[in-house]
Write a protein that binds this DNA or RNA. Structure first.
Length: 276
DNA sequence: AGCCAGGGTCTGC
DNA sequence: GCAGACCATGGC
């Protein structure tokens, strides 16, 4: 990967395994939207970003080298060698096929609180509505960054609200879960950043203490927000896929990178609807 | 009208 | 441990 400054923009050349549509619209993050041909905009870590892809070059618009090094390099997981991981997973034929379907996906390193809150909202819900609820959450309780663009509200801000305040989200039964999570995080009863360095099982035990957080939401938080690349969130699609494709047992070569394998399998399962 | 959506809780065996 | 009812909301 080569980094080239071009006016106000920062360009990434010679980068592999990074397709914007696959990474930004695969159900791991809910705040990115396509605003042009292969151009996306979104917010992370309180920063607005417009990012585009053309002829194999990824362009981060109006981005300094400092912001890239500080935020976006990590956020897009650009230091991880996905080609190597794909070759490890390819020891299994089915994983090889799934990986070829979805080789442009990178696991975003999202803010821990945003990941936790987003996947609480995701439970028994569909992606368009999840996006709508998170949109209202940010519009109503986040800080305005640029015109009409809002940051993800902090846990402290949400913890200061009441269930009635949250009614505007139309998040249904999930509102009480959001509130409990915000209170436990804001009070530092649960310190999310510390979970990054804990063993997977210990970290999960902490997260499921939150009302409305079960194993699946916890594992999504660990994978997408807390750098636990071996977390393996088991939603209905994954359960069906693992049963059908692997007789219920994930292949040995996938254990180390289970979270990445999970994304490939999820994408593959939904594309093919498992009619295979 | 009824079912489903990247689940979780609570109750009852 | 495991099944089943229930949970809000919206799209089809």
């Amino acid at each position: 990967m080569k980094i080239i400054i071009n006016g106000n923009n920062l360009e990434l050349h010679d980068i592999t395994n990074f397709i914007l549509s696959e990474t930004l619209d695969c159900g791991q993050a809910f705040r990115w939207q396509e605003c042009g041909d292969n151009i996306w905009q979104g917010v992370a870590f309180g920063r607005y970003l417009k990012i585009g892809s053309n002829n194999g070059v990824i362009t981060l618009f109006d981005t300094t080298k400092e912001d890239f090094e500080l935020i976006w390099k990590d956020y897009f997981d650009l230091e991880r060698d996905y080609a190597k991981i794909l070759s490890v997973l390819s020891q299994n034929e089915v994983l090889k096929t799934a990986g070829e379907f979805a080789c442009g996906i990178r696991i975003l390193r999202q803010e821990p609180w945003e990941a936790l809150c987003s996947f609480i909202i995701s439970q028994n819900n569909n992606i368009p509505r999840i996006k709508g609820i998170i949109d209202r959450l940010c519009q109503n309780f986040g800080e305005q960054i640029v015109d009409g663009v809002y940051s993800f509200p902090t846990a402290e801000k949400i913890a200061s609200l009441s269930l009635e305040d949250l009614a505007i989200l139309k998040s249904g039964f999930r509102a009480k879960y959001i509130l409990d999570a915000a209170k436990k995080v804001a009070s530092r009863e649960i310190v999310l950043d510390k979970l990054k360095d804990m063993p997977l099982d210990t970290a999960r035990e902490e997260l499921v203490k939150i009302y409305g957080v079960g194993e699946k939401v916890a594992d999504c938080t660990l994978l997408f927000g807390l750098s636990h690349i071996d977390a393996f969130p088991k939603d209905v699609w994954i359960k069906r896929a693992v049963e059908k494709l692997f007789d219920g047992v994930l292949p040995e070569c996938a254990i180390q990178y289970a979270g990445i394998a999970q994304q490939y399998i999820f994408h593959y399962a939904r594309m093919t609807k498992l009619d295979i």
